[in-house]
């Protein structure tokens, strides 16, 4: 018997010691970016000129007012065509270790031109995009002033869009202020954070973004249904083990980005938490636990970025 007590003691000490080191870090208070370039990117971001029928802009699916997403299960492209995936939030996207659900773009610049050309998104050929932008004197001028004189290229469009996205950082959340020891968390938030760590959620949702820094599988304990054609890592590698393996989404703005999961099939945050508990922890969370976790997740939501305030 003494042996077990010993073991428990040791184990508790081990866990306790490691609890002291926080697996989540605060976002920078002021993002660094080139204001002129970001302003040009901002204009492009909200301009439907970048879609074939001029009905869809980047912001159509990544609306800052909707947590940087669109509130739909799956996004609607030009001609009201439905996309394959739930739109991820554009907020803090620059801190993702890769872009898209399956990380197929290494950087924001690489990502930016993807949706513009995607037939189910904006469906615009890059040559046409350039022709349109060159047709707008104000764009011509803005590009010449921002970059050195020279032809307007897709590369420059991508650079501007990426720079704008880098400005979209939701700093100074309650949780960040707690990490910086500026405030104390509410009781619910505290309990939620403790659960978040104790249940093991934090093993995937960690770092600045509380996610967005590794690929993980949904359905580790209880299997999650796999859909043919979804943008998981399997779509890239065709490896069986990569089925349902996605880039972990950031929880920073999750409070505002319902519906959830890659397919957008989960309507509420509570349901999403419960589902994650079932599929990846094998646990049925009670109402109390879910409430606490929701409180914690809401504390992750930061302030509206300065670049949008100015608008």
């Amino acid at each position: 018997m003494g042996k077990y007590i010993f073991a428990i003691l040791g184990f508790s000490l081990w866990v306790g010691g490691l609890l002291a080191q926080e697996p989540i870090s605060p976002l920078p208070l002021k993002p660094t970016y080139n204001p002129a370039l970001a302003a040009l990117g901002q204009r492009l971001f909200f301009d439907p000129i970048l879609s074939k029928d001029k009905t869809v802009s980047c912001a159509s699916c990544h609306d800052p007012a909707k947590g940087g997403a669109d509130g739909r299960e799956r996004s609607e492209g030009v001609g009201k065509v439905l996309g394959g995936m739930n739109a991820p939030s554009v907020f803090n996207a620059g801190f993702n270790f890769s872009q898209f659900w399956n990380g197929r773009a290494a950087s924001l610049e690489e990502q930016a031109l993807g949706p513009i050309q995607n037939p189910v998104e904006m469906n615009l050929a890059l040559s046409e995009m350039i022709r349109r932008l060159e047709g707008e004197p104000s764009y011509q001028e803005a590009f010449v002033q921002t970059f050195n004189p020279g032809p307007l290229t897709p590369q420059k469009v991508a650079l501007a869009l990426a720079e704008f996205e880098r400005a979209l950082v939701t700093s100074n959340s309650r949780f960040d202020r707690y990490l910086r020891k500026e405030i104390a968390l509410s009781e619910k938030e505290q309990k939620g954070y403790r659960l978040f760590k104790g249940l093991g959620c934090v093993s995937c949702h960690n770092g600045r973004l509380v996610g967005g820094n590794s690929y993980q599988k949904i359905g580790v304990v209880n299997p999650y249904p796999w859909f043919q054609g979804q943008a998981d890592l399997y779509a890239l590698t065709q490896k069986e083990s990569d089925k349902n393996r996605f880039k972990v989404p950031s929880l920073r703005m999750s409070a505002d980005t319902a519906p959830y999961f890659s397919s957008g099939e989960i309507g509420t945050l509570e349901a999403a938490i419960a589902a994650m508990g079932y599929y990846n922890l094998g646990v049925t969370l009670d109402q109390d636990q879910i409430e606490n976790l929701v409180a914690f997740i809401k504390s992750l939501k930061g302030e509206t970025p300065a670049i949008l305030e100015a608008q």
């Binding site: 184990f11 993980q216 599988k217």
Partner: peptide, 17 residues
């Protein structure tokens, strides 16, 4: 490694709980 590590950490954290 990240994927496997998270899975294992998840379990090793959760097992004592």
């Amino acid at each position: 490694f990240q994927t496997l590590n998270s899975t294992l950490k998840n379990s090793t954290i959760y097992i004592p709980t």
